[in-house]
Design a protein around this nucleic acid. Structure first.
Lengths: 209, 209
DNA sequence: CCGCTATTGTGTACAGTGTCCACTAATGAC
DNA sequence: GTCATTAGTGGACACTGTACACAATAGCGG
């Protein structure tokens, strides 16, 4: 019987496999490419099996989106960690801010499918690690906040200007990633793109100064 | 016969109707909602008729996207035109810059579907009205350039900083529209959103100063 | 150890989509 | 007026998401 082979998989294997498969699909084709039936095929299971783990395709996509966001967060954390220098060192603080932005843009450029998927939330689903201290560095916004606080401690950013400034900065970098990634500026040559990135970084620094 | 009713429509009526129908679908549901068969239904024509005017669904979507972009450009132009004051008047120039950004964000918020569709180019298709003088004010980037030039003429922006600065500014506003529209910040209350907009505007002005 | 129940995967089915092919009626050039 | 081109029709196919009924397994209480 076919059924004999049925429950050989460990506990959450199918669900995890579906998310992994969805991630793979999203990597090459963006959110549109994460098609439920294809994901189940990759896991080696019948289409309807997915409905034991997700209410519908949007819920699967939400899980994939969250995974993609985690991937972005990881790369940002790695980029920041690569900058030497102790907390309070002004030069290091400035470099860390640059590293965050660079990692963000690098991810958007190297993994356009995952980047688009990370920000394609198909339905409301909480995100962003608000002011909860724990796990602050696990999400993009949290990491940016940490670095901005360090800039304040290092004396490079006026404490009175600190409040809420993560949003304009995030917007600027995110907007550039969108415009040069999936947006109208997507076909500009690489050199031009780098030039725009430098322009954007100095624009931000100019505003912080 | 059915066929007797066939070619009663004026010349490009079906094509225009399809774009209009697609625009209507996009308005309420974004790019995903512009489904070819539904558009043909709205026009009162059989699905395959669309293929006489568009190679495939993506080409229809591209036309709808372009129309949505035109709509955005119109609203921006209207917003700028509403600001009184002659060219060279510093106060007017600054207000016009604000009006451009405000119109952009207002459109993104009031017509999220059209905004998303305008920036969801399904395939390469030129855009942006480069340095071609004619029709400069018909596209978002061109309008922004015009206002920035006015800021230079009014002495509010150092001419040496003018080159390319439209991109960071566009990025900032576009990024905010994305994050607060379809992105992770989409569920914040209206008051908070307005606060973020003000923060963002002063962030930009701070960088220009 | 046995039987019960919730869990998880299967099979079948249906509506809706994009798109292909062959066909046909109207249009406009000659 | 003939006739090729254009623009719409009709039918078909593969694929999608999803609903319903069913079956096999796992883990439980006894």
């Amino acid at each position: 019987m076919r059924g004999a082979e049925r429950r050989r998989r460990p506990r959450g294997a199918v669900r995890d496999g579906l998310v992994a498969a969805g991630l793979e699909l999203a990597r090459t084709g963006g959110p549109e490419a994460v098609v439920l039936r294809e994901a189940t095929r990759m896991v080696g299971v019948v289409p309807n099996a997915a409905y034991r783990h997700f209410a519908d395709r949007d819920e699967l996509l939400a899980a994939v989106s969250a995974a993609a966001m985690q991937e972005l967060a990881s790369r940002m954390a790695a980029g920041v960690a690569r900058v030497p220098g102790k907390h309070g060192d002004p030069a290091a603080a400035r470099q860390r801010l640059g590293a965050i932005g660079a990692a963000y843009l690098e991810f958007a450029h190297e993994e356009p499918g995952l980047f688009a998927t990370a920000f394609a939330l198909p339905q409301r689903h909480a995100y962003g690690a608000p002011d909860d201290g724990t796990g602050r560095d696990r999400m993009p916004l949290g990491q940016l906040r940490t670095v901005l606080d360090e800039l304040v401690d290092a004396g490079l950013l006026d404490r009175r200007r600190r409040d809420g400034i993560e949003y304009p900065i995030w917007s600027t970098v995110h907007g550039l990633a969108m415009l040069t990634g999936q947006g109208p500026l997507r076909d500009i040559p690489g050199a031009t793109r780098h030039h725009l990135e430098e322009l954007t970084f100095s624009f931000i620094e100019e505003s912080l100064a």
